[in-house]
Structure formats: structure tokens, C-alpha cells
């Protein structure tokens, strides 16, 4: 459509159309958006501040969620053993979970795409070696890799710095566990693009290899990366929750959803199920929404299905 503005072109594109007409995509995007907004603006919109020790009172402990007897509307989802509001704790916890998830996925993308591009474009011994490293790492479950990296670095750090750097260590560990997926896909796509004539046209006029990789090849291989990134984000969030649940993740001063689940686990069978179940539901909803969006994206980007 010549002359149409960029916005209307985007709105009418096949991908936007596919999004608008898919109930699953719309619902997942809505849920994800609500959760992300709640997390980002938690300090502004959370009913209580669960970290403010001064505002806590043991009198408020173990209040059940609304709908059960003895409930209180100011604590919609109840409180935990120290009187912390579960809903607020979830919002703050989601914040941490999402932050760690996004940053570690970003780290994995940068490393993975970089290695994949290099391996695909250079080929030969360099490419083969890089891919073997990726393959070896992929034989281990990613959570194991994250655990290992986390453990090694934490042990190597002097005790005084551990708590402050813990969040960075977690991000690094999870990122390292996820890079091979990106590298393999990007390398495969790079191998295909490298032999195309437009790359040769650039080589004929003497464009240096690094520039060809970044300006020519990268834009053409980034498509599948978006799909893997979406699914990888879900993986990263679950990985962080697992590490925190196991007690080797973030310190309890910055509880993520996984940490909350772990706290509440002690009370699950003594009747105060809401302390662990609601954070669990929040985690499931978030990751499910992300995964469904990733599925939609993969189908939308697949030219054969159009």
C-alpha cells in the first residue's frame, strides 16, 4: 500500500492481523501485560510494603484470603506468618522474578547470537569448536548448569560481597545456561544466509566481514531468535524460581516468587495454604502467558502457515 503511514502499515500487516484475530494471543498478552504492570509499578500500587518491618504486626499474621472466615479486605489474598500481605509480596516478588528473567535472557541473547554469528560466518575450526562447546553444554539440563555456575562463583566470592552480588551471579548463571539454544539457531541461519548472493555482493565491493555480519546477516537471522527469546524468558523465570526455591537463589531480603513459595511451603499442610499457593499461581500464569505468546509468535513468523 504505497503512501500509507508506518503505523497503518504495521496495523494491517499479516502479523498484526494474526495477533488481532487470535483469542489465545490476545488473552495471553492481556494477562502478561497486567502482571508486568503490577510488577513494575509495585511500589506505587501495592496495598502494603511487605519489606517495611515497622509496618508489620504479628497480630495480622495468617489472615486467610477474602472469601474465607476472618478475612480482611485490606489483605485480599491473606497474610503470611509475619503479617506480610501476600498480594503485595507477590507484586514485589514478581518484580524480582521478571527483572532476573529479562536480564538473564538478554545476556543469553547477546552471548548466544554473538557466538552463533561468529560460528556460522567463520565456519571451519572456529565454528566447529564453538558449536561443540554449545553441544556439550546442552547435554546437561540447563538448571543443573545454572546451579553449578551459581555454586562455583558464590564459593569463589569473599563472604562479605556474596549477598550484594547474589542477584548478578544469578543473572549470569541463568544466562550462561541458556545461551546455547540461541547460538545453535543463529549459527544455522547464518550458514544459510552466508551463501546468499547479497552477502557475496557486499564481499565483492570489499565490505569487511564484521560489518557484513552485523549489518547484513544479523537482521535476517534475528527472526527465530525472537521466538526462542520469548520461550527462553519463561525458562529463565522458572530457573530463577527453582534456584530460589532450593535456597541457593536470591537472598531473602529480595524475595522473588520462588522464595515466597519456599517460605509458604512450611505452612502448606498446617492449613495456611494461601501463603504458598498464590505465589505459585502467579508464577504459572506469568510463564504460561509468555509461552503462549511465544507459540503465537512462532506460528505468525512461519511463512508456510500463512
Amino acid at each position: 500500500m504505497p503512501g500509507a503511514s508506518s503505523v497503518s502499515r504495521a496495523w494491517n500487516s499479516d502479523m498484526a492481523y494474526s495477533f488481532r484475530t487470535s483469542p489465545v494471543a490476545l488473552a495471553s498478552a492481556a494477562i502478561a501485560l497486567i502482571l508486568i504492570v503490577a510488577a513494575v509499578f509495585a511500589p506505587l500500587i501495592a496495598p502494603h510494603d511487605p519489606m517495611d518491618v515497622a509496618s508489620l504486626s504479628l497480630m495480622d499474621s495468617f489472615k486467610p484470603p477474602v472469601g474465607l472466615p476472618d478475612a480482611d479486605w485490606s489483605n485480599l489474598l491473606g497474610t503470611d506468618n509475619q503479617g506480610r500481605d501476600v498480594l503485595s509480596a507477590i507484586m514485589y516478588g514478581m518484580r524480582i522474578s521478571l527483572l532476573v528473567g529479562f536480564l538473564s535472557t538478554l545476556f543469553a541473547i547477546v552471548v548466544g547470537v554473538g557466538v552463533g554469528l561468529l560460528a556460522g560466518y567463520a565456519g571451519g575450526l572456529v565454528g566447529a569448536t564453538l558449536m561443540r562447546v554449545a553441544d556439550v553444554q546442552l547435554t546437561f539440563p540447563s538448571i543443573l548448569t545454572a546451579l553449578l555456575v551459581d555454586g562455583v562463583i558464590t564459593a569463589a566470592l569473599p563472604g562479605t560481597m556474596r549477598q550484594a552480588l547474589q542477584i548478578y551471579v544469578i543473572i549470569f548463571a541463568i544466562g550462561i545456561s541458556l545461551w546455547p539454544n540461541f547460538a545453535r539457531t543463529v549459527r544455522g541461519s547464518t550458514l544459510v544466509e552466508r551463501n546468499k548472493d547479497y552477502v557475496m555482493a557486499a564481499r565483492v565491493i570489499g565490505v569487511p566481514s564484521w560489518r557484513i555480519m552485523l549489518n547484513h546477516v544479523l537482521p535476517n537471522v534475528i527472526g527465530p531468535v525472537m521466538v526462542i527469546a520469548t520461550l527462553g524468558l519463561g525458562q529463565a523465570i522458572i530457573a530463577e524460581a527453582t534456584l530460589s526455591f532450593l535456597g541457593v537463589g536470591l537472598p531473602s531480603t529480595q524475595p522473588s516468587l520462588g522464595t515466597l513459595i519456599r517460605f509458604g511451603d512450611d505452612f502448606l499442610f498446617s492449613g495456611q495454604w494461601w501463603v504458598t499457593v498464590f505465589p505459585g499461581i502467579a508464577l504459572i500464569l506469568m510463564v504460561l502467558a509468555i509461552n503462549l505468546l511465544g507459540d503465537w509468535l512462532r506460528d505468525a513468523l512461519n511463512p508456510r502457515l500463512r
Binding site: 548472493d197 555482493a201 547484513h216 535476517n220
Partner: peptide, 18 residues
């Protein structure tokens, strides 16, 4: 180098689609 250049066979692969 500027004085030589090339035209390719496949019109679909010889231009960067992005």
C-alpha cells in the same frame, strides 16, 4: 577495487530482504 563489480543470477537472493 571500485572498478569491478558483479551481477548475480538469483533476483531473490541477491538483494538483502531487510
Amino acid at each position: 577495487r571500485r572498478r569491478m563489480n558483479m551481477i548475480f543470477q538469483d533476483p531473490y537472493a541477491s538483494l538483502n530482504p531487510r
